[in-house]
Write a protein that binds this DNA or RNA. Structure first.
Lengths: 110, 110
DNA sequence: CTGTATCCGTTTGGATACTG
DNA sequence: CAGTATCCAAACGGATACAG
């Protein structure tokens, strides 16, 4: 109970800032979008079909947020009608290790 | 654009279920509590002081949720006044690798 | 096709006071 | 000390219609 001079079990965690990471993958839909984009580039409508529960409003919000954070890139093609493609950036692809660790943990602790 | 027969870049992500993991560490306060408990056992009031922005209501809710998920243990000592201690379980300690990966990612992509 | 605008119900969470 | 009860404001998010 001596909280004044306790020795941390995991000193590498103390100064750890993962809020930034959670800000990217912690949202309600962010991971579902990521999962799709790890499979390759997708268009807005494709994402909507593959994630049936998401409303267009929420999907737009999620995509914009992730674009702002630099984990995906949005490309607009001036076709008629317009075409938009979403692709992971290297920063986004690099989330791979984190997600793998999450997958391993979830599998281990059923 | 051939979405019918595309080959995923990250096949190991496709069947991945990390919702369970995010359910534990994705909440607004969960990680801040985890960070404290990685330093060792703490009492309710200690957590409140170390996480000044959290209200008692939110802290209780977070702790109860994490207890329910099996990542921490709540021990009540029938002293007067009552004493309550929170400690990570092995399942909770095992979140360590995930958090380390998050920390590395956040550090890499300033 | 790819969103945006609007409405609105639900949920979240802070502040505060109070209890065993 | 460790919460719980209550109130209330803000944010989230779904449904729907519509615009460029």
């Amino acid at each position: 109970m001596a909280t004044n001079n306790y020795i941390p079990k995991r000193p590498d965690i103390i100064d750890c800032n993962i809020e930034k990471t959670l800000d990217v993958i912690g949202g309600k839909w962010a991971f579902l979008v990521l999962r799709e984009l790890f499979g390759g580039t997708h268009r807005f409508g494709e994402l909507q079909r593959r994630i049936p529960a998401v409303s267009p409003r929420a999907l737009t919000s999620t995509l914009r947020h992730m674009e702002e954070k630099g984990v995906l890139e949005r490309k607009v093609f001036p076709t008629v009608p317009v075409t938009v493609e979403y692709t992971l950036t290297p920063k986004g692809e690099d989330l791979h290790q984190i997600i793998m660790e999450m997958k391993l943990w979830a599998a281990k602790w059923t």
